[in-house]
Amino acid sequence: MSCQGCVGAVKRVLSKMEGVESYDVNLQDQKVTVKGNIKPEIVLQTVRNAGKETSFWPAEGK
């Protein structure tokens, strides 16, 4: 994500996903936190299909 337009695109996709209860998009850190009853892999694939690069956060301390 490089701009507010990217943030808006990610928010639009997440807001339409069944099972997503809440999300936080942090442009500065380029991180998205999603909470809900949904498989993480599905979230990554859906956001990737919207044209955004995705990956899981690296484990802390590594």
Rank of each mutant, 00 (worst) to 15 (best):
S22W: 09
Q28S: 07
V43R: 02
A50E: 05
L14Q: 00
K31E: 11
K11V: 07
S55W: 07
S22V: 08
C3G: 08
T33C: 02
G8M: 07
N26P: 01
V20H: 03
Q30V: 09
C6Y: 08
V47H: 00
N37C: 02
G36Q: 07
D29E: 11
G36H: 09
L14T: 01
K16H: 10
E60M: 12
V47C: 03
G61E: 03
G61S: 03
R12N: 13
G61L: 03
K11L: 04
M1G: 03
C6P: 01
S22A: 15
Y23D: 03
S15P: 04
I42E: 14
F56N: 08
E60A: 15
Q28E: 07
C6A: 09
V7Y: 10
T46V: 13
V47Y: 01
Q28R: 07
Q28N: 01
A50Q: 05
E53K: 15
I38T: 06
N37G: 06
K52L: 12
M1F: 02
V32W: 00
D29Q: 11
K11I: 02
T33L: 08
N26K: 10
G8P: 02
V13K: 11
K11F: 05
K62S: 11
T33V: 13
V43I: 12
L14V: 02
E53N: 15
T54G: 02
N49K: 15
V32E: 00
V34I: 08
R48P: 02
V34G: 04
V20T: 04
Q4L: 09
V7N: 06
G5Y: 13
S15R: 09
Y23Q: 00
V34K: 01
G5N: 15
V20F: 06
S55E: 11
Q45H: 06
N37M: 10
R12M: 09
T46I: 07
M17F: 08
R48A: 15
S55N: 08
L14F: 02
W57P: 10
K31V: 14
G19V: 03
L27S: 06
F56T: 05
